[in-house]
Computed example of a mutant assay.
Amino acid sequence: MTIRVMLVDDQELLRTGFRMVLQSQDDIEIAAEAGDGAAAVEVLATAEVDVVLMDVRMPRLDGVQATRRICLDGDGLPRPDAPKVLILTTFDLDEYAFAALKAGASGFLLKDVPPPELVSAIRAVHNGDAVVAPTTTRRMLDRFAEVLPAPQPQAGPPALDPLTDREREVFLLVAQGLSNGEIATGLTLSEATVKTHVGRILAKLGLRDRVQAVVLAYEAGLLKAGGH
Score class of each variant (00 low, 15 high):
residue 3 I to Q: 02
residue 6 M to Y: 10
residue 6 M to K: 11
residue 10 D to L: 03
residue 11 Q to L: 14
residue 12 E to K: 15
residue 14 L to I: 14
residue 16 T to C: 11
residue 16 T to N: 15
residue 19 R to N: 05
residue 20 M to Y: 12
residue 20 M to H: 15
residue 21 V to A: 02
residue 23 Q to V: 09
residue 23 Q to G: 11
residue 25 Q to F: 04
residue 26 D to T: 14
residue 28 I to A: 01
residue 28 I to Y: 01
residue 29 E to T: 14
residue 30 I to F: 10
residue 31 A to I: 03
residue 31 A to S: 08
residue 32 A to L: 08
residue 38 A to G: 13
residue 39 A to F: 13
residue 39 A to D: 08
residue 42 E to F: 09
residue 45 A to N: 12
residue 46 T to L: 13
residue 49 V to F: 07
residue 50 D to E: 09
residue 51 V to E: 01
residue 52 V to S: 03
residue 60 R to V: 15
residue 63 G to W: 02
residue 66 A to T: 05
residue 68 R to G: 08
residue 70 I to D: 00
residue 72 L to M: 07
residue 73 D to A: 07
residue 73 D to L: 05
residue 74 G to C: 10
residue 75 D to Y: 13
residue 79 R to A: 06
residue 79 R to L: 05
residue 81 D to F: 02
residue 81 D to H: 04
residue 83 P to V: 02
residue 83 P to G: 08
residue 83 P to L: 00
residue 84 K to I: 09
residue 85 V to I: 09
residue 89 T to C: 07
residue 89 T to Y: 07
residue 89 T to A: 02
residue 92 D to W: 00
residue 92 D to Q: 02
residue 93 L to K: 10
residue 94 D to F: 01
residue 94 D to N: 07
residue 94 D to M: 00
residue 94 D to E: 11
residue 95 E to K: 12
residue 96 Y to V: 01
residue 97 A to T: 04
residue 99 A to H: 06
residue 100 A to S: 05
residue 101 L to I: 04
residue 102 K to N: 10
residue 112 D to Y: 09
residue 114 P to L: 06
residue 115 P to S: 05
residue 118 L to I: 01
residue 118 L to D: 11
residue 120 S to E: 14
residue 121 A to H: 04
residue 121 A to N: 04
residue 121 A to E: 03
residue 122 I to C: 03
residue 123 R to Y: 02
residue 125 V to A: 13
residue 127 N to A: 15
residue 129 D to W: 15
residue 129 D to A: 15
residue 130 A to G: 13
residue 132 V to N: 09
residue 144 F to G: 10
residue 145 A to P: 10
residue 148 L to T: 08
residue 148 L to S: 08
residue 149 P to D: 06
residue 151 P to A: 09
residue 154 Q to M: 12
residue 154 Q to N: 10
residue 155 A to M: 12
residue 155 A to T: 15
residue 157 P to G: 06
residue 157 P to M: 05
residue 162 P to I: 06
residue 163 L to V: 03
residue 163 L to G: 01
residue 163 L to W: 07
residue 165 D to F: 14
residue 168 R to D: 10
residue 168 R to Y: 11
residue 171 F to N: 04
residue 171 F to R: 01
residue 172 L to Y: 10
residue 173 L to W: 06
residue 173 L to I: 06
residue 174 V to T: 02
residue 179 S to N: 07
residue 179 S to Y: 09
residue 179 S to C: 10
residue 179 S to V: 04
residue 180 N to Q: 14
residue 181 G to P: 05
residue 181 G to H: 09
residue 181 G to M: 09
residue 183 I to M: 03
residue 185 T to N: 14
residue 185 T to D: 14
residue 187 L to K: 07
residue 189 L to H: 04
residue 192 A to W: 09
residue 194 V to A: 08
residue 195 K to T: 13
residue 196 T to M: 14
residue 198 V to Y: 00
residue 204 K to S: 12
residue 204 K to H: 11
residue 205 L to A: 06
residue 207 L to H: 00
residue 208 R to D: 06
residue 208 R to V: 05
residue 217 A to V: 07
residue 218 Y to M: 09
residue 225 A to H: 11
residue 228 H to C: 15
